[in-house]
Simulated scan of single mutants.
Amino acid sequence: MTRLVVLSLCIGMVSAASVMSAASAAGPAPSGTAGMLFNHEHLNNGSPGWNETGVRLNYTLAPRHAFELAVARTERFDLRDRQLSALYVAPLSRELTGSLEANASSTHRVLARNAFGTTLQYEFAPAWLVHGGVKTTRYDTVRVNQALLMLEHYFSNFSWAVAWRPAHAFGTNANSAEVRASYYYGDKNTIGVILAGGKEAANIGNAVTLTDLRSAAVVGRHWLNREWALNYGIGSTRQGDFYVRNGMTLGVQYAF
């Protein structure tokens, strides 16, 4: 397995699959990382900008065996939320890796009340992975059920992945798709492009609704030395006819 590190930018398409791939990276690595991340997005409809600050701790017990804890503070539409999230990844066999993820918000004004998901990753050929998973997200007024099917391949200093995410909410079925491409340079550095589109459930400030989504992002991680790294991202998301969000993410990460 080649290494994979993907920074999740706020584009409405987040899953455990990328973290599972990172946890399965071969070769020596620090046993843990701790980092802080700040994201700001500007909305073109005159609404206040979105801000998010988060702290994340990741600890690797062994290849393909890791856990992660994160705390985030989010501000959207002048409403503030807190969220706690956790992820556990473990090998089930030589080729199969499983994960469990959960998050909860005690305030849930714009964020989901809670979410639970599980994902399986299977390496069916060298450098070829298939991911499958399910996730349920509960808002105050609706529950969104989503599935994941993703194919991922590594070659030379590159990787690509394509994903399909069917969802069910409000008695309606919806679909979204995602394409990722990454380039790896140096020892642990990476830069990638993420394109996504389809329908997703989103809180537009006063109600949760299914909206059309189109997004593009460039994300990356650059290590300054053995202990310190910079995470970065820039992206744009069109949320139906409601608004366009243009944002930037910056973060610092320490390996121990």
Rank of each mutant, 00 (worst) to 15 (best):
L195D: 12
E95I: 12
Y139T: 02
I194A: 04
S105P: 09
Y59N: 14
V55A: 13
Y183H: 15
L149C: 10
L9V: 09
P48G: 13
L61D: 15
V5K: 04
L37H: 06
V218T: 01
K188M: 13
N203S: 13
E152M: 09
D140A: 06
G251P: 04
S236Q: 14
N206K: 13
N246E: 12
V5E: 13
A23F: 03
A115Q: 02
Y184M: 10
E101K: 00
N45P: 00
L43F: 08
A177V: 14
V252P: 02
V89N: 03
G12F: 03
C10I: 13
L224V: 15
Y139G: 01
L111Y: 04
E178I: 01
L96Q: 08
G171P: 00
L210W: 02
L92S: 03
A201H: 00
Q146H: 11
R3I: 02
V6P: 00
I204T: 09
A147W: 12
S105Y: 02
S105F: 01
Q83K: 05
A229R: 12
S21I: 04
F67G: 14
E75Y: 12
N145M: 14
A169T: 07
G220Y: 03
Q146W: 08
L120Q: 04
H108N: 09
L92P: 08
T137M: 15
D241E: 15
V162N: 02
A22K: 00
F242M: 00
M150E: 09
A127N: 15
L100S: 05
A29N: 09
Q146K: 15
T137K: 13
A147N: 12
R180M: 08
K188D: 12
A25I: 01
I234N: 04
L96V: 15
D241R: 13
I234Q: 07
R143F: 04
E52C: 09
G98D: 09
R226T: 10
R109Y: 01
S85T: 02
G98R: 02
A167P: 00
S93L: 06
